[in-house]
Simulated scan of single mutants.
Amino acid sequence: MNNENPIPQDEAVYVISVASQLSGLHPQTLRQYDRLGIVSPNRTVGKNRRYSLLDIVKLRNVQRLVGEGINLAGIARIMQLEEAVANMSLEVAKLRTEVDALLEANPPRSLVRRSEQTVVLYPKD
């Protein structure tokens, strides 16, 4: 098998019948998930659905969640939250890189230690 040019995971190349076979879901179920916005594949110029490997993974995840008894509205919300967390994780990683670069370019100055001061307490009369 030639793996010199593997298909990128986000490249939409699979028609609905192939996506159905790979995910183990009926094509009508895939259409319903698309209508509900749970897994929305890319579209060709002719409006045909094209699924990527990432879409197939999402479909399998949806199937697992349905099997756990979660309804489609709950699944849609879970997927939105997971995507938000993933986006925030990327943003945090970028910010950490920037902070590390700034700290390297401008090392923090050590705190200036003040000399000890004598405190004098006067007794109350």
Rank of each mutant, 00 (worst) to 15 (best):
87 N>I: 02
98 E>L: 10
19 A>D: 02
91 E>Q: 15
94 K>W: 10
44 T>W: 02
98 E>Q: 15
33 Y>M: 04
20 S>H: 00
13 V>L: 12
71 N>E: 11
59 L>M: 08
49 R>K: 10
119 V>E: 05
13 V>R: 05
59 L>N: 08
87 N>C: 04
9 Q>M: 08
45 V>W: 03
14 Y>H: 02
44 T>C: 01
32 Q>C: 11
81 L>Y: 08
83 E>H: 11
3 N>L: 13
38 I>P: 03
13 V>Y: 01
44 T>P: 01
84 A>N: 06
89 S>E: 11
108 P>R: 07
124 K>Q: 12
61 N>C: 06
43 R>W: 12
68 E>Y: 01
45 V>G: 09
96 R>D: 10
6 P>T: 03
71 N>S: 13
62 V>A: 00
15 V>D: 14
68 E>D: 08
9 Q>S: 15
40 S>N: 12
46 G>A: 14
120 V>H: 07
28 Q>M: 12
2 N>G: 11
64 R>S: 01
4 E>Y: 12
117 Q>F: 11
52 S>Q: 00
1 M>I: 00
75 I>V: 09
24 G>F: 01
109 R>K: 13
113 R>Y: 10
85 V>H: 04
108 P>K: 07
34 D>L: 03
37 G>C: 06
100 D>V: 13
119 V>H: 10
43 R>M: 02
10 D>G: 13
17 S>T: 09
50 R>V: 04
20 S>P: 02
67 G>M: 00
86 A>G: 03
95 L>P: 01
4 E>R: 14
22 L>P: 06
42 N>S: 15
58 K>V: 03
118 T>D: 07
8 P>H: 04
94 K>M: 13
87 N>M: 11
72 L>G: 02
32 Q>W: 09
104 E>L: 10
65 L>N: 00
34 D>R: 05
35 R>S: 11
94 K>F: 05
51 Y>G: 05
124 K>T: 15
125 D>E: 15
32 Q>H: 15
109 R>T: 14
82 E>C: 07
123 P>M: 12
80 Q>E: 10
15 V>M: 12
38 I>D: 03
29 T>S: 06
59 L>V: 09
57 V>C: 09
31 R>V: 10
70 I>D: 00
27 P>D: 02
29 T>Y: 01
82 E>K: 14
28 Q>N: 15
57 V>E: 07
50 R>F: 01
75 I>A: 04
86 A>V: 01
12 A>W: 03
11 E>C: 14
49 R>H: 03
29 T>M: 03
74 G>R: 02
42 N>E: 15
4 E>H: 13
54 L>E: 04
70 I>Y: 06
79 M>R: 05
125 D>N: 14
71 N>Y: 05
79 M>F: 06
39 V>Y: 04
3 N>G: 07
4 E>T: 15
105 A>P: 00
125 D>M: 08
35 R>P: 03
104 E>R: 14
83 E>C: 06
81 L>W: 07
102 L>E: 03
99 V>E: 06
11 E>D: 10
